[in-house]
Design a protein around this nucleic acid. Structure first.
Lengths: 136, 136
DNA sequence: ATAATATCAGTAGTATAGTACGGAGTCAAG
DNA sequence: CTTGACTCCGTACTATACTACTGATATTAT
């Protein structure tokens, strides 16, 4: 079985050595085995776990949620449905964020379109006016 | 002219007193006038500034960006175009975030649809399999 | 007048996800 | 056998946006 030093596995995954130590600290990665020199050494399982973390992060899961996923994975009582619930929850969450951002986007577009004035002073800027409008 | 104590203005805006002191610390709000008792007191201008901040935050601007907006606003040399550029930059930023989230959403939907198994153990969970798939 | 509430200043803590630093020990190449 | 690269650990710092706490004044209500 292949094994890697901390710098090697970090490079393979494309993360920082410090980040790996951080993952160990927050217990999303288990304490790795050590050589006599006290150097950490990692195996294929660690590699897979790190890649799982990376992929799940790309899916918008937080480290805390990824930890949950990984824990469910090793709990023998956990079902695939448990995982599905986490995924569904995350989906709702992301849909919510998309909705919010779209609203923001529309307001910004309206604001920007009202502005045709490179030379006008900020005194008469329609963007600022609109941001303030809701205030008056 | 109306004036408010820190707790009054905080309640009016719907923020925390501590948050107001924080805004003062990071210089997004100016140092307010004081009574003899050293109590802060705020006026209508402060109220408007706070509401501007609140509204801009809703538009997805960070406090740092809002500070920029407010600074441009008082710089007499700044043009409406300067404001527009900030708004456009924010728009690009938000469109980017929407795109990313949509990708994530699609992957999550695919994952969830593959899972029809409330009772299956996490060993055979297709969601976990897919997250891992890109690894193998 | 006294009790309750508000405010003061400064510091520390929260959450998220890391990054940086420094001095000591270890490993590999020339 | 020395030099440079790598790793060790612990701590502190970054960024963002707040929130909490403490002990001392100040104001307000009864």
């Amino acid at each position: 079985m292949e094994h890697y030093k901390v710098g090697e596995i970090a490079e393979k995954i494309g993360i920082n050595v410090e980040t790996l130590r951080y993952y160990e600290k927050i217990k999303i990665m288990p304490k790795p085995k050590r050589r006599e020199s006290r150097y950490r050494f990692y195996d294929e399982l660690d590699l897979r776990r790190l890649l799982f973390i990376k992929r799940a992060k790309e899916l918008g899961f937080t480290l805390k949620e990824i930890k949950e996923l990984l824990n469910l994975k090793i709990e023998s009582t956990a079902t695939c449905g448990d995982i599905k619930h986490l995924a569904e929850h995350k989906l709702t969450d992301i849909e919510e964020r998309i909705k919010d951002l779209k609203n923001i986007k529309n307001v910004l577009i309206k604001l920007i379109n009202q502005c045709v004035c490179e030379e006008v002073s900020t005194e008469d800027c329609p963007i600022l006016e609109v941001i303030e409008q809701k205030i008056k």
